[in-house]
Design a protein around this nucleic acid. Structure first.
Length: 347
DNA sequence: TCTGGGGTCCTAGGACCC
DNA sequence: TCTGGGGTCCTAGGACCC
């Protein structure tokens, strides 16, 4: 380009988002270890940490940790229940702030977004976005800069908290080569285990593995994707198209397992009502109903059924949910129940 | 440390029709 | 006639992410 501008992807990631929203509305919590998750009562079992503030992380509290473990590590922590509507509203504030005529913004979750931009100085743009978010919402974020979404996303990890970092083809090898493969976005425990079986543990080993070799353990398409991932390549473009939800689910883990079918049916009724309400709020209807059951000790099954016609009637959704549950007879003790409503595919 | 809740996307296999 | 091939719909579940 004559003007020296190039195409960049920026990844904006809000710092300790849930905890930050809680501190914003209760400033007296600033500087204290704040732990968000579950009902907010850390003495109850079967609940985990959703987000911990940096002060709480200093005590070893991590996302996904049981609340009881967090309480042991951080007895003076402030434990708060998750307030999803508040986080959703705060997220909308942030995303609206990021959107500008010359930027394509893809919302990637409550607390993160990808931004595509053509600019000669992506660091300056990153600082500008950070300032805009801070001025408009009081929240701080880290920004990663890359040549694609993968690079930008991983750069954010280097930028936290509140910083800016760049990871492009030029830096990829120096930064990523020796890191374990699960540092890559999209590589979880199963893929890591399958790669280990091929003797591939580090990113540079993945980059050097041919798709043919990877196809010994993976679907050919996955093999190609992994091969590219190791080299820092990802084709997926930033897509600013607003995404309509595919469905809504509600689930609940019980402090003690349920065995009484009548009690189970009551819970399915309540979950079905929430799903129906959500469909109405989304301006659509439920076309398929899924039931998720986690049996004791920890074994999960899902069943789904298409309805004769889409509905928002909670009774009808509940009736199908109960019928689906019948398919699991004889019923073992139930640890979790979930109901999901899937919306009709876009026309 | 006994393991939440809410999502997305993808694949495989059976049923069914021509 | 016991056997084929293609296409589509539907369900189960894998895998990952925040």
């Amino acid at each position: 380009m004559e003007d020296g501008a190039s195409d960049w992807v920026l990844h904006v990631d809000l710092d300790q988002f849930l905890a930050a929203v809680e501190v914003r509305r209760r400033p007296e919590l600033a500087g204290r270890p704040v732990i968000v998750g579950g009902s907010g009562d850390p003495t109850k079992p079967r609940q985990v940490v959703a987000t911990a503030s940096y002060e709480a992380r200093a005590f070893g509290v991590r996302s996904g940790m049981p609340l009881r473990a967090a309480l042991r590590r951080c007895p003076d922590g402030v434990f708060l229940p998750a307030d999803n509507p508040a986080y959703e509203a705060a997220s909308t504030e942030v995303m609206d702030t990021l959107r500008a005529p010359d930027l394509a913004v893809e919302v990637a979750g409550w607390d993160e977004a990808f931004v595509a931009a053509r600019t000669p100085d992506p660091e300056a743009l990153a600082r500008r976005l950070q300032a805009a978010v801070r001025d408009a919402t009081g929240l701080s974020c880290a920004v990663g800069i890359g040549g694609n979404k993968l690079q930008a996303k991983l750069a954010t990890g280097l930028a936290k908290p509140a910083g800016v970092a760049r990871l492009t083809d030029a830096e990829w090898e120096a930064v990523m080569a020796d890191r374990p493969v699960d540092a890559l976005w999209g590589v979880g425990p199963r893929i890591t285990a399958n790669l280990a079986a091929l003797g591939v543990h580090r990113v540079h080993e993945l980059a050097d593995a041919t798709p043919q070799r990877l196809a010994e353990r993976f679907h050919p398409r996955i093999a190609v994707w992994l091969h590219h991932l190791g080299q820092g390549r990802l084709d997926s473009p930033v897509d600013p198209t607003p995404r309509a939800p595919r469905g809504r689910s509600h689930e609940q883990t019980f402090a003690t397992d349920l065995t009484d079918r009548a009690v189970i049916d009551d819970h399915l009724g309540a979950l079905s009502r929430q799903v129906a309400d959500h469909a109405v709020a989304d301006g659509t209807a439920v076309a398929r109903v899924a039931v998720k059951v986690r049996f004791a000790p920890y074994f999960t099954k899902t069943r789904i059924r298409k309805l004769p016609a889409p509905t928002v009637d909670p009774q009808e959704i509940a009736a199908v949910a109960r019928a689906l549950l019948d398919g699991f007879e004889p019923l073992r003790p139930v640890r979790l129940l979930g109901v999901r409503g899937e919306y009709p595919p876009p026309a």
